[in-house]
C-alpha cells in the first residue's frame, strides 16, 4: 500500500512523534511505500535541526531525518506552521532577516497543497498527534 503520514505533534511533548516514526519503520519493513511525510502544526518541530536530545534519549529529529534519507522519502514541513514556530530554511532566513536557519534535511518547506497532493497519490493518509 501507499501511505501518506501526517504528524501534528512536537517531539518529546507526546508519544505521537515516536508512534509515527515506528509506524513508518514498520510500514517500510512490511514492503509498503511512503509517498510523503507531512509535518504540520506543532509537528514541524520534528524538523528543527537546533533540537538536541540528551544522550540517553532517542533523538527524534535525528531519527526522522535518518529514516527519510535512508529510504529516499519525500518530506514536507508546512511553511505557514513552521515560520512562526522558528523553523526556517536559508531562503526564509533571508526573507525575514534572521541570523540562522534550522530546517533539518531532507525535509523541505512547502504548503498544504503537498498534503492534498500526497493524499491523492496514496491509498491511506494516516495522522498522528491530532
Amino acid at each position: 500500500m501507499k501511505f501518506t503520514i501526517v504528524l501534528h505533534a512536537a517531539p518529546y511533548t507526546s508519544q505521537a512523534s515516536l508512534s509515527a516514526l515506528r509506524f513508518a519503520q514498520a510500514s517500510l519493513a512490511a514492503g509498503h511505500e511512503i509517498v510523503r511525510v507531512f509535518f504540520y502544526y506543532d509537528g514541524v518541530h520534528n524538523t528543527n535541526e537546533f533540537s538536541a536530545a540528551p544522550q540517553d534519549e532517542l533523538d527524534l529529529v535525528e531519527a526522522w531525518s535518518t529514516l527519510l534519507q535512508e529510504h529516499g522519502i519525500d518530506a514536507v514541513t508546512c511553511v505557514s506552521s513552521s515560520i512562526k514556530r522558528g523553523i526556517i530554511d536559508t531562503r526564509e532566513a533571508r526573507r525575514h532577516d534572521r541570523q540562522g536557519h534550522n530546517l533539518r534535511a531532507p525535509a523541505v518547506l512547502s504548503g498544504l497543497g503537498q498534503l492534498v497532493d500526497a493524499s491523492l497519490a496514496s491509498d491511506r493518509t494516516i495522522s498522528f498527534g491530532a
Binding site: 504540520y40 502544526y41 505557514s80 506552521s81 498544504l112 497543497g113 498534503l115 492534498v116 497532493d117
Partner: peptide
C-alpha cells in the same frame, strides 16, 4: 489552542485544490 484555526487552513487548502 491553535488547532481549530490550523484545521480551517487545511479545509480551505483542500478546497482550493478542487477536492
Amino acid at each position: 489552542s491553535g488547532h481549530a484555526r490550523a484545521m480551517l487552513d487545511m479545509v480551505l487548502a483542500t478546497a482550493v485544490f478542487d477536492q
